[in-house]
Amino acid sequence: MPLSRCLEVRDVSHRYRHDQPLVLNGVSLRIEEGVAVALMGPSGSGKTTLLSILGMLTIPTAGTVLLDGQPPLRARGRTRLRAELFSWVFQGVNVLPRRSAVDNAALGLLARGMRYSQSMGTALAALEVVGLHGLADRRIDTLSGGEVQRVCIARALATRPRYILADEPTGQLDRANTAVAIDALVGRRPRGTAVVIATHDPFVAGHCDVVVQLVDGTPTVDSRLP
């Protein structure tokens, strides 16, 4: 088997507590290099749970996570690996509200050890990609919701990670803002970066290469769009 760069879950099942039913039941999914995946399904179907397993924040109850065909490192090394591989965009906004847009966009770069001066340049470039170049020095709490979510996308794009995991990144945006955000996240992502977007929005799914349907956390339906 050739060594291809991919992230894979095999027969993953998960329950949060012993007395609760399975949230995910035998899910297998393979994220190829640079692909855009939409993760769809009704509320409670386990989209967030699956993202957090893919992003190595949650260890599944059963099944395996494979990185490039290998089981990833345990415990300590995982924190580091996680930082190198993944960038997150969250539902709602997760920012440092009193800091500037460019400071927020630079956060992932700094956490990866980039020098401050260099990180500012890279973060500015990322803000330009999401169309916020002019607002770089504005404090986050003076920006609109759509602008803030684009700052979060810029933060994810700036690090040029192998995977961007986005949990309902457009959940609180209107159509126009959704279009801008998805254009940035999917259309303008760096070459080689795969994005996995959990979403309810068919408009968002329409911009992805692959759509995965999760129904009640049980089997995955992998439907490829034309």
């Binding site: 440092l96 700094l110 050890g113």
Partner: peptide
């Protein structure tokens, strides 16, 4: 250690300053 030490210093100062 991923963060540069100077980066952490700057971050700490920025947080203190921004949350005046």
């Amino acid at each position: 250690m991923n963060w540069q030490l100077s980066g952490l210093f700057r971050e700490a100062w920025s947080n203190v300053y921004a949350n005046a």
